[in-house]
Structure formats: C-alpha cells, structure tokens
Computed example of a mutant assay.
Amino acid sequence: MSLRLLISRPLRTNIGSITQSPCWRRPPFLIPSKLIVPSSYSGFRNYARLPPFQHHQHHPSTSPPSTPSPPPPKPSPFEESNPDDAYLLSYDSLNESSPKPAYAVFLVRFILASVAMSAIFLYSSIFAVLAAYDHSPYLSSIMRSSPAPVTATLLAANVLLFGLKRGVPALTPALVRFGYLRLDILSATHRISTRLSPALSIFLSSFSHRNFPHILLNGVAFYSFGSYIEVLDGWPTLLILAAASISGSAIGSLVLQRAHAPSIGASGVCMGFLSYLAMRQPDMDLSIMFIPFIRLSIGMGTLGMTAWSVYGVARTWISRGTVSNMLDHGGHLGGLIMGYGVYKWQHGNEKPVRRRNINPYPYSF
C-alpha cells in the first residue's frame, strides 16, 4: 500500500479572553495534540483537570486540591512530531492583503501549470535517456545491465531528495517549501504561486516524502510496478505514465477533495502504475506488501483501492470539509484515472496481454 499523506495543521487559539471572562464556567473540550495552550495559563490547565462536579466549587482565591495530575495521553504514531512541521508556516504568516482571483481562473491556471510541468519533465527525461544511451558509453553500459534503469533512476531521485532534506539541515527549509503541495494555501489565496507555496511544488510534491516509513512504502510500490511496466512496454511508456500521473494526482488533490491540507508523496504515480497494469495484464497476481503469502488479482486490488479512494473523497464532501483524511484520496483517485487514460490512449481496443504472451525484454538497446 502506498501513501500520499495529508498533513493536518494543529489548531492554535488564544484562550486568554475566555478565561478572564466573568461568565465563563468551564473550559472547552481539550484535545492534547490539537489545542495548544499558552504556558502562562497554568491556572487554567489545573482547573481543566478538576472533575466536572468540582468546577462550580472552585474559586480563584482558593487553590485546587493537590491531587497528582494524570500523565498526558501518548500520541498515536501518525501524530508524532516531524522536523518538517517547523517549516510548514500557516496562512496567517503570509500577510496576503490583495484580492484573490476567481476560483475558475485559479483552477485553469493550476491545471495548465500542472500539465506544463509534467510535459517539461517528460520531454527532458526522454532527451536525457537518449543522450545517455548515445553519447555516454559508461552510462549506456550501466543502463544496459539493468532490466529497469529508468525506474531505478526515478526512485533514486526520490531517495536523494529525502536524504538531502534529512541529512543537510541547510537545505531542509527549501526542500520542505518546494516539496509540500500546500492545498490549504492554494485554496485560501487562489494563487498557484506564493511565498509559502511555490508553483514548482505542484510537481516536486510527487518526488518528496515526509518520513522514512512513507518513502519505504512508496518506494517498494514504485519500483515493483514501474519496473514491470518498463520491462513490459519500455521506458517511453513508463515516462508518459509517470508524467500523466503526476499531473493527475495534483489536480485530483485540489479538485476532488473539499478538506485541503498540505499533501506530499509519490503514491499518485504508484496508483497510475497500478491501474495501467490492471488494464494491460488483468490476470496478474498481487501480494500485499510485507505479507507475501496473501495474494489477490490485480483487478480486485485496483477495484479495492478505487473504492477506498472514492469513500475518502465522499467523506470530506459529506462532512462539508469538517472531516479530513490522513491520506490524500483525491491524489490517489487522480492517479488511477490517469493510468486508465494512458492505457486507453496507447492501446485502445487491443486485447489485454496475458501472462503467456509476455516478452520479458520488449526493448533492446
């Protein structure tokens, strides 16, 4: 299973005016990982720990009973702090005062920018691969010795960006700023490029990852599907599919979801690979990651991922944006749609390739 994460920002509020009001009786419901209480309101924190029946008995002149405070609840693994959060500035720090454009104009600009970046990536990658084969004997020998050299190169780019973000602290602010697709800021400003959300993040967010488990899961899925496609149909098809899935996942993240949060990860591309293979070779079997003894057909796996993504998208719309997902289901669904579209564009009404008809090395250089 691959992940494209939606990073929720903590709710920050000033409760000083609430605690000083004479008509205030009891504190709001506190969620430790969501509500940040200023340190100066220690009396408020002690007051909030009293049992409910003692709230009306407490008076500012008397000290609360000296009972040991319960330990704070342990956060879940998905709420643990991440070094990237220090550089994910909120919309309030943008100080945007100019009027925002109409949403239709912003949406057209976003789609055009996403398609243009994917097209530049596609043509520059094709040129680089051809140049490596024709003009560099060393690179040519390396690529000839690997069954899926382009897939390995794209995966190495993901690993390199993550390694630089964690290993070179001076580059972390820039890589976080360019590596997160700030859907929250885009939907608030209706601008494809701001100081906190550069336009290049529309493309680079599909090559960036939040933590080691995130890049591990996406990396295994990326190489498993991508290398198979490269062996089956060649590296040009792989690059076309990757470029289309990058664009489709970015557009799906913005358009299909109602609750917007920073998005990051290459799983939109992995979903494009998955739906392409499901149409190209429907009798292929899949095994669940890290549980290889559980197998299912690729058609059932794709259908399950599509249903899960549709449910996640519908959940945000039914709740009117009040409920957000940890996974970017809109990006997943956009990648699935683009994978199906690339198959129909390239193969049309051809019969799917059955396992007995596979040429394991269709392209030779």
Rank of each mutant, 00 (worst) to 15 (best):
D285Q: 14
M289G: 08
V115S: 07
H209I: 01
P38H: 12
V255S: 09
K351Q: 13
F162G: 00
P51W: 09
P360H: 06
S21K: 05
T67G: 09
P52Y: 01
V313C: 07
R26Q: 13
P282G: 06
P68I: 12
H55R: 10
I298W: 10
P22F: 03
T194F: 06
L200Y: 02
I111Q: 02
S63K: 07
R144C: 14
A259I: 03
V115G: 02
D84R: 00
H209M: 01
A243R: 00
P282W: 06
L327C: 03
F212L: 15
F212A: 13
K351H: 11
L216T: 15
P32L: 00
W317Y: 08
Y47W: 09
I215T: 02
M117D: 05
G272M: 06
L296P: 00
M279G: 07
S66L: 13
L274D: 02
L204Y: 12
I246E: 01
D92G: 04
W24Y: 15
P72L: 07
P72G: 03
K344S: 12
Y138D: 03
T194Q: 05
R4V: 09
G299V: 13
S39H: 12
A266M: 08
F162H: 05
L171R: 08
H332S: 06
Y343W: 13
Y311L: 11
Q346A: 10
I229L: 03
W317S: 05
G331E: 02
P169I: 02
Y133M: 10
S69E: 12
H55W: 13
